[in-house]
Measured scan of single mutants.
Amino acid sequence: KFNKELSVAGREIVTLPNLNDPQKKAFIFSLWDDPSQSANLLAEAKKLNDAQAPK
């Protein structure tokens, strides 16, 4: 279960257009550290992506 959630969340995070590479890497490392938090980490990444969207 975690492997699928981890890969789905990881793929989504790397495609978020408004995150820079260090931010993406930080989220990916957090996913590896605790795969059970993949849904929460993906939600946080999406929030940050939205907040950094060009206005």
Rank of each mutant, 00 (worst) to 15 (best):
F2N: 09
F27G: 01
K25Y: 12
A43F: 06
N3Q: 12
I28D: 07
K24T: 01
N20I: 06
P54D: 08
N40V: 11
P54L: 08
A53I: 06
A26P: 03
P54I: 08
K55M: 10
I13W: 00
N20L: 10
S38I: 15
T15S: 13
L41D: 01
A9F: 08
A45H: 00
A45K: 00
E5Q: 08
K24C: 10
A43R: 10
P35H: 02
L48S: 01
S36P: 04
D34N: 08
S38F: 14
A43G: 04
T15Y: 07
F27K: 00
L48V: 07
V8C: 12
S7I: 15
L42K: 01
V8L: 12
S7F: 14
Q52M: 08
D50N: 07
S7H: 12
F2W: 12
I13M: 03
D33H: 06
L19M: 01
K55S: 11
N3T: 13
P22F: 15
P35Y: 03
N18S: 02
D21Y: 12
D34E: 06
F27C: 05
L6P: 04
G10T: 15
N40R: 12
S30N: 11
V14S: 12
N3I: 13
L19A: 00
V14Q: 12
A26L: 09
E12A: 11
L48P: 01
A53E: 08
D34C: 11
Q37I: 05
K4G: 12
N49C: 04
K24V: 04
P17I: 05
G10M: 15
K55I: 11
D34K: 03
P17F: 00
E12C: 12
N49P: 00
T15H: 11
S30Q: 14
D34T: 05
A51K: 10
S7E: 14
F29L: 14
K1S: 13
K24P: 00
A39L: 10
L42Q: 03
R11H: 11
S30C: 15
K4V: 13
P54V: 10
A45W: 00
D21H: 08
L19P: 00
E44C: 13
A39V: 09
L16F: 05
S38T: 13
L42G: 01
P35I: 04
P35E: 04
N49A: 03
P17Q: 07
A53C: 07
I13R: 00
F29Y: 10
P17T: 08
P22Q: 14
F27Q: 00
K24D: 02
K1I: 14
L6V: 12
P17D: 05
A43I: 09
L16K: 01
K47T: 07
S7K: 09
A53N: 07
G10P: 02
F27N: 01
D34I: 00
T15C: 15
G10H: 15
D34G: 00
K4F: 08
D21C: 15
L31H: 01
D34V: 02
Q23F: 02
E44F: 05
K55H: 11
N40D: 09
N18V: 00
N20H: 07
Q23N: 02
K46I: 11
L31W: 03
K4D: 13
S38R: 05
R11Q: 11
I13D: 01
T15W: 10
V14L: 14
S7Q: 13
K24N: 03
N3D: 14
A53P: 04
L16H: 03
D21M: 10
Q37K: 09
L16Y: 05
K25N: 12
E5L: 11
L42E: 04
K47H: 08
E44N: 05
A26H: 13
S38Q: 07
P22K: 14
G10R: 12
L41T: 06
S30V: 07
F29A: 14
P17G: 05
L31N: 03
K4N: 14
L19F: 00
D33I: 10
N49H: 01
K47P: 02
I28C: 14
L19Q: 00
